[in-house]
Amino acid sequence: MIEAANLAFALGLAGLAGHALDRAGSWRWCGRAGDWALAAAFAALTAALAARWYAAGRPPMANQYESLLILAWCLSVGGWWLSRRWPVRAAGLLGGAVFTAVLAAASFADPTVRPLMPALRSNWLTYHVFTAMAAYAAFALAAAVAVWNLAVARRDSAQRPPDAVVLAALRFGFFMLTVGIMTGAVWAQRAWGSYWSWDPKETWSLITWLVYAVILHLRRTGVLPARKLAWSCIVGLACVLFTYFGVNFLLGGLHSYSGS
């Protein structure tokens, strides 16, 4: 299981290197090889998750390590979508960079397979964690494209991604975050008798949700041009990162198991 996840990480690094060489030296074959390496990384990660699911007898979504693998899996699907919607060489580079960064973060988490505590033995775990990770993946890709927009495309407008790509990622992420919060609320009502307890993770999810709601509303009313939208995506991702990592390590609460 861990070997397959490590293989996915190695292949992700190879894919990232291929795309970096393609961009640095205009070696197209490196970029194509990078695409294949990233596809193989996705296959290895899928195998790692399937093996873990089989071994544990439950969905691999119970702790920080497993949720990071799910996040990386969602990122690889999102990266594929990004390369279809924005068919330039930078798409593979960005997707590969975020994918390997998440797998690198997973290497710091405890990979031990442990049985679920009673409160987590629910189908809602799958819906809640998967939707939250899909939302985080979409926001991460939106922010990666935003950074590209600010850092590289500013000098070369031909490299600039269409705003529609960023907005589509934001919209999908917002939808998934909403579903994630609601599935969590329904589950909390069933497990603890309260759909909302102002637990730090709940509170920071609400803050993140409000930040993206404001971004989408301001964009809708034309107050947020491309450059400000890019900065907004970065601010939004900072909230996501705090909700995902910061709360686990600094604030604890009902979701404290997710930091283990």
């Binding site: 803050i207 404001v214 301001l218 809708r220 604030l251």
Partner: peptide
Amino acid sequence: SVRLFGVLAADIAAVSGVGAFLPQN
């Protein structure tokens, strides 16, 4: 207005954040 929504959302987010950091009750 959307502007009022933005102001209220920012206020709610800010005080919620304070509540998350500061031990409650």
